[in-house]
Amino acid sequence: MSLFWQCLVDSLLLGGLYSLMSIGLSLGFGVTRIINFAHGEMIMFGAYGAYFGSVLLGVDPLLSLPLVAILVAVTAAVVFKALIEKVLDAPHINQILLLFGISLALQNVAAILWTGDARSVSTPYSLTAFEFETLLVPHGRVIAFATAVVLIVALFCWLRFSELGRATRAVAENGQAATLMGINVSRMYMLSFGINAALGAATGAISAFLLTITPFMGFHMLIKAFAIVVLGGLGSVTGTILGAFALAFAETWVSYYVPEGNGWAEGVAFVVLLCVLIIRPKGILGQAVAVH
């Protein structure tokens, strides 16, 4: 019984982290129709930003999160303007190659700048937990979950109530119609890519005290985020959240209830993904994507 509640809590907390990790990728795809294969590196740069903020300036990762997110977003917007915008109408393979190239270059830049040493931030809350009899709720993961919820709610509010948010949704729905309505589509592409990067960097800032930071941490997270986005439905932000929690629950329950399950968890999660895609190829709440 104690494992049941523990499993439930762990699943929820992991789901929050997965949601934040993948929601930016989903938004970026929904608007630009480009899968940002350098998303993992946005997370990695966010993690290093929070790490150096903590080590060099003594700033808590949660406090450095907004600045780190803005810096990464601005840099990503510049990269978008300089490189990615040029392949928006190119075949998907060109886009994928370019973004993978950027991803590899960023990994190696990080390795050169900061070496391959594994790092992590130890804050007072990252090494403590609430205890309710046998139930353990780590402070760090609760804070990460709460941060994820705040950022996701902020994103939804922005998309729904702000002018730029509504324009972003309009572009996601129909780029040509949005252009006819006088929306600067190119600017919205850059903005959504920047937000994608900012959310990635925010995930990184949280990961700085939850996970291990290395220049190559992003690739693993990209694969997970990509699976979540596909599971939830490409381009659907709500679907992505559902996908994130579905994957987190599948992984955690397999880890708890299957012998040596932690090793199998990822495999089982991808089997779930496969099954969902067979039954519903668009994902849980996805939209159809034209094949060119």
């Binding site: 523990q6 762990d10 907390l13 992991l14 941490m217 992984e251 955690t252 880890s255 399950g261 932690n262």
Partner: peptide, 8 residues
Amino acid sequence: GAADLNPV
């Protein structure tokens, strides 16, 4: 590279 080892 697992994000959560708590189940184990």
